[in-house]
Design a binder for these strands. Structure first.
Length: 813
RNA sequence: GCGGAUGUGGUGAAAUUGGUAUACACGCCAGACUUAGGAUCUGGUGCUUUACGGCGUGGAGGUUCGAGUCCUCUCAUCCGCACCA
């Protein structure tokens, strides 16, 4: 009987379905384990990255079930988003039809991989029932002032016809279509993630050692907390007059209050209200107004690449401490969206300010000692700084902030690089933002009892404009407050909103899905996710948003969880010929074809064996053959098993080869808990099993074979579940799969040790000694065996490592 | 520029507290069985040397009886952020 994967795999997949084998308990009695692989976007077909992601997750889930834990291992679909609309434009298919048919196809593909998902908890984020609860959260966030609508300059992707969040702009281009991002002033909805910045930052400490350190660093940098001084520059009397009395002062932020006596000019962003006023009221040369206009139309990225450029605005401010008059410029390196869009400039101690001052011949005033040339940005004592002269700059920062606070012209402040999360998208295939624009009542949320606000299905998707905006009737509604005619919001939510709370939806028992979004008791029992697995590309976007949502929903009373993902494993990409697999490069491997040719077990074994999960995985067709060969060998060796229970073995009576085989089998067993719970290096566990099989092949004791197969099938079941379950059924009535077995220490007890004898740091000979031999005996034997190398030498030092080696340090006589 | 990570055979990769470097697999070589083999099995395979031996974990130092592992410096590659005042 030869190994026939398609038959075995279909049989067990059917059986698992019939047995509902992977549903968690309804109650909370057993200890839980929540294993989650990031859910897929239903693009149409699985790719190898999915196979890797779900093979890893499934190994964890199956392992923990054996520990008698209550395992939640769900799957669902991240189903809203642009590609569905693109398919509609290209192929004339309705996004809903396209999405759900893709889901049906991909669900079948996942099934053929034999993944142990709970089937009752599956959902798609475009299900109206999911939208309903999401809209409820959004309204509650609005009530708590965590969601607001405002008009600002946003990142706009012309090819996607939508706004992008800051996090979705990669190197100045759209994260999805790679089109250059433009700036556009438009209204949108924002979530106040900055309000949670401190907690999001501080709680990264809770994740140390549980998340990859680079992800923690990336989040840390992204939040970008900096502390400093915020104060106002008062405009000079003549400047106030010039500005028609519309401005008295403006605020700046600095992290270097210690350099305040070195301020020689101040700079405003092109978008700053004062700059705008000067431009709009013809208070600057036309030429300069035009040039400022050009800067204002550049994206942040374009400005970053441009040379420093600026113009004197013909106004001055008063230095708050010295009373000096300081010129005000506009400069292209001052960001409108950070620190109030204005800076104090200290060219002596800041590289940007220095470069700008050099270009425009502005004065430079040194106030920190140290270094030979300017700008000097390191530590030093203050000079020419009035009462603060002589202090170190660290000490002076606090004192200067204190002085500003006392005098009431400024205060210590914290600023974040993080921007609030813009969640408006001008697209059809998303969750409608549940608000209404009423002429009488303004912007009002829908009534919760009217939720969900579902998408209209009769839409025409042309790629021109927002289909919800263009729909003849959908946006016309009545105001939930006054009952008069009103207009429904036509923006939909960013799809990252859906993936920010799906981990709670899975945890909520499906019986409750109709009546609640998140069940508190269920959530508190199941969350945080004990092991989360996904791509590093989500290090900031999804993982930061999901952490934020978790904290917000906690504060809204939905649960008591602080962090959604307790442990994170970021898997590496799947490569072919050193490059990322992609359709455009034509270097993809089709999972369906792979499963058809070799079976799911081989596909899974290869992906876990070829590299540790966090590293990139280089595809190799012949290594896949190798994985297949191992499974075949394992399958063939069923003939070696002679009894259906774990045998009792008398260790002392065994041959040397049989003893070694047992050692290899038990070494693999010993390794398994470390691999599943700590190192995640499945490749080494598989290698240990291969070694065990190789060692078993070198002996012929039937009991040792039986024990070896009994244990190995158990160890490998999470990785290659079909063939191991089949063999286990035939040989051991599946009894061997029920729990993790115990290591028998006596197997490792050796009668003899092989000592390596090193002389002068070099390995020379090996000697075999009884385990009971005393150190002196070992040493004497080593000297005898190594006599040849000891001739004419004096032994300086003798080191014996019990059971392992002897090292003799020598020098010539 | 700042931050993080990684450098080990022809290839993917192993290596508790510092203790026999290259496990396991791919590839390659030889052999067996075969009409045949891209099937299966067995053996070999770091470099160098006729051999003894010598040299080998990106490079250079250091600590140690002993370093892939610890310390210092350095080079290369990859990733993230990039005027955040």
């Amino acid at each position: 009987m030869s190994y026939n994967p398609s038959e075995i795999e279909a049989k067990w997949q059917q059986k698992w379905d019939d047995e509902k084998a992977f549903e968690p308990d309804d109650g909370y009695e057993r200890k839980k384990k929540y294993i989650l692989s990031m859910f897929p976007f239903p693009s149409g077909r699985l790719h190898m990255g999915h196979v890797r992601n779900y093979a890893i997750g499934d190994a964890f889930a199956r392992y923990y079930r054996k520990q008698n834990l209550n395992v939640l291992h769900p799957i669902g679909w991240d189903a809203f988003g642009m590609p569905a609309e693109n398919a509609a434009i290209k192929h004339g298919r309705h996004p809903k039809e396209w999405t759900y048919s893709n889901i049906d196809y991909m669900r079948k593909e996942l099934n053929t991989l034999g993944l142990s998902f709970s089937k009752t908890r599956e959902f798609a984020t475009c299900d109206v029932l999911y939208t309903k609860w999401e809209q409820e959260f959004i309204i509650k966030m609005f009530e708590q002032k965590l969601l607001y609508r405002e008009s600002t300059t946003v990142n706009w992707c012309e090819s996607c016809h939508t706004v992008l969040a800051n996090e979705q702009v990669e190197e100045g281009c759209c994260w999805r279509c790679d089109n250059a991002v433009q700036l556009k002033e438009m209204p949108g909805y924002y979530l106040d993630i900055i309000k949670y910045a401190d907690e999001l930052l501080g709680d990264l400490k809770l994740l140390e050692g549980k998340w990859p350190s680079q992800v923690l660093t990336m989040q840390n940098n992204w939040i970008g907390k900096s502390q400093g001084l915020e104060f106002s520059f008062e405009l000079s009397a003549s400047s106030k007059e010039k500005l028609g009395g519309h401005f008295e002062r403006y605020t700046v932020f600095t992290t270097r209050p210690d350099t305040i006596y070195g301020v020689t000019y101040s700079a405003l962003a092109a978008e700053h209200p004062i700059t705008k006023y000067l431009c709009d009221n013809a208070l600057l040369d036309e030429e300069i107004v035009a040039k400022i206009g050009v800067i204002a139309n550049m994206t942040e990225r374009e400005r970053a690449q441009a040379d420093k450029e600026g113009y004197a605005l013909g106004i001055t401010v008063i230095h708050p401490l010295t009373g000096e008059e300081i010129p005000v410029w506009t400069a292209n390196f001052v960001l409108a969206s950070y620190g109030g869009g204005a800076v104090m400039a200290v060219p002596a101690h800041d590289e940007r300010d220095f470069e700008f001052a050099s270009k425009y011949a502005l004065p430079v005033k040194r106030v920190i000692s140290g270094g030979e040339s300017l700008p000097y940005t390191l530590e030093g004592a203050l000079i020419d700084s009035a009462a603060f002269t002589g202090l170190g700059n660290y000490e002076s920062k606090a004192k200067i902030i204190g002085m500003f606070e006392e005098a009431g012209f400024g205060k210590g402040t914290t600023n974040y690089r993080l921007r609030n999360w813009g969640v408006s998208r001008q697209r059809y295939w998303g969750a409608p933002i549940p608000f209404v624009h009423c002429k009488h009542c303004g912007l009002v949320p829908e009534r919760v009892e009217n939720l969900p606000i579902a998408l209209p299905e009769d839409v025409e998707i042309t790629g021109e404009g927002n289909p919800l905006e263009n729909h003849p009737t959908w946006k016309h509604c009545t105001c939930p407050v006054c009952g008069k005619e009103a207009i429904r919001e036509t923006d939909t939510l960013d799809t990252f909103v859906q993936s920010s709370w799906y981990q709670f939806r899975y945890a909520t028992h499906p019986n409750k899905w109709n009546t609640t979004g998140i069940d508190k008791e269920d959530a508190n029992y199941w969350l945080g996710v004990d092991q989360y697995i996904g791509g590093i590309e989500h290090a900031i976007l999804h993982l930061l948003y999901a952490r934020f949502f978790t904290k917000v929903l906690r504060d809204l009373g939905y649960h008591n969880i602080d962090e959604p993902f307790e442990n994170l494993l970021t898997q590496g990409m799947v490569l072919m010929d050193g490059a990322k697999m992609s359709k455009s490069k034509g270097n993809t491997v089709d999972p369906d074809a792979l499963v058809e040719k070799y079976g799911a077990d081989t596909a899974r074994l290869f992906t876990l064996f070829a590299a540790p999960p966090a590293k990139e995985l280089e595809w190799n067709d012949s290594a896949v053959e190798g994985a297949f060969r191992f499974i075949k060998r394992l399958y063939d060796r069923q003939a070696k098993v002679t009894q259906s229970t774990l045998p009792q073995i008398e260790q002392a009576a065994l041959s040397k080869e049989s003893k070694l085989a047992r050692v290899k089998v038990y070494e693999a067993l010993q390794k398994s808990s470390d691999v599943y719970e700590k190192s995640f290096s499945f490749n080494t566990l598989i290698a240990a099993c291969m070694e065990a099989l190789n060692a078993l092949d070198k002996q012929d004791n039937a009991l040792v074979w039986t024990e070896g197969m009994y244990i190995m099938l158990n160890l490998l079941e999470p990785i290659i579940p079909h063939v191991t379950t089949e063999l286990s059924e035939v040989l051991f009535a599946r009894k061997n799969l029920q729990r993790i077995l115990e290591v028998k220490e006596e197997v490792f007890v050796q009668e003899n040790f092989v000592y390596v004898v090193m002389i002068g740091g070099k390995k020379r000979v090996e000697i075999e000694m009884a385990a009971s031999a005393a150190q002196e005996e070992v040493l004497a034997a080593a000297k005898e065996a190594g006599a040849k190398w000891l001739e004419g030498m004096t032994i300086l030092k003798e080191v014996v490592v019990p059971g392992k080696l002897v090292n003799l340090a020598v020098k010539p006589n």
